Amino acid sequence: MADGCCGAKAGKTALNDPRWRRVLWIALLLNAAMFFVEFGMGASADSRALQADALDFLGDAANYAISLGVAGMALAWRARTALLKGVTILGFGLWVLGSAAWAFVTGTAPEPVAMGVIGTLALIVNLVVALMLYRYRTGDANMRSVWICSRNDAIGNIAVLAAALGVAGTGSALPDLIVALLMAVLGISGGWQVIRAALGELASGRSLAGQSAS
């Protein structure tokens, strides 16, 4: 019940809250910077998990930019934007799934030290962003989509570190590919959650509009 009350309050007041917008700007800049760092190092280390996580940073940066653009707009527009983001997250998950399957056939063992260093840096960044966004996790679909992205990223980074240990211990690419697969599942699950929430809000908005017209 407490979560429900807080969620309702956040959904009504936080959209135009300067603190919410400031958090999104910080998250946007951090994620954009980490994309360049992690993608470059992921390619250098031949790590599919790092490259997938880097593309996730890029997707999140775009999502934060979209969220900044729609904050304060009508609920229907926020829900449509959340729906677009949900489809994007789902598509990212499917891409990672296909990439991991391809690497299973053609890939080589990545460099575990680089994976560990960059994975730790990415985890720190995502934990900072997730903590900043935590208070907004029960807002509307747009806010929940931002929180889900950050939560999934932190979980993915922990998995990348586990993969680095696995690669170091076995000399095999399999731990890296398993983590890429887990990240794909997280993306697909998170994207579906956002899509369901956005569709629910759109349906609710149409229902209210119909009642007003009658």
Score class of each variant (00 low, 15 high):
179 V>G: 12
94 L>P: 00
133 L>M: 08
187 G>L: 03
175 P>A: 06
97 L>E: 04
80 R>T: 00
36 F>Q: 15
187 G>N: 03
22 R>S: 15
18 P>Q: 09
51 Q>I: 09
133 L>Y: 05
4 G>H: 14
170 T>C: 06
47 S>P: 08
83 L>Q: 01
167 V>Q: 05
182 L>R: 04
32 A>W: 15
67 S>P: 00
212 S>Y: 03
191 G>D: 04
107 G>P: 05
97 L>N: 02
120 T>C: 13
14 A>H: 09
135 R>G: 04
47 S>Q: 12
198 A>K: 03
195 I>W: 02
33 A>K: 15
76 A>K: 00
131 L>T: 12
117 V>A: 08
82 A>V: 00
65 A>N: 05
183 M>S: 12
48 R>D: 12
192 W>P: 04
11 G>D: 12
138 T>D: 10
201 E>A: 02
141 A>S: 01
92 F>G: 06
106 T>Q: 10
94 L>Q: 09
50 L>G: 10
145 S>L: 06
45 A>Y: 09
83 L>V: 00
69 G>E: 02
198 A>S: 07
104 F>P: 08
123 L>W: 07
8 A>F: 10
156 G>S: 02
97 L>I: 01
23 V>N: 14
64 Y>E: 11
24 L>H: 08
124 I>M: 11
190 G>N: 06
49 A>L: 12
189 S>D: 13
37 V>P: 12
15 L>E: 03
178 I>W: 09
53 D>K: 11
145 S>F: 01
116 G>S: 09
141 A>E: 01
88 T>M: 15
210 G>E: 02
128 V>M: 08
166 G>A: 09
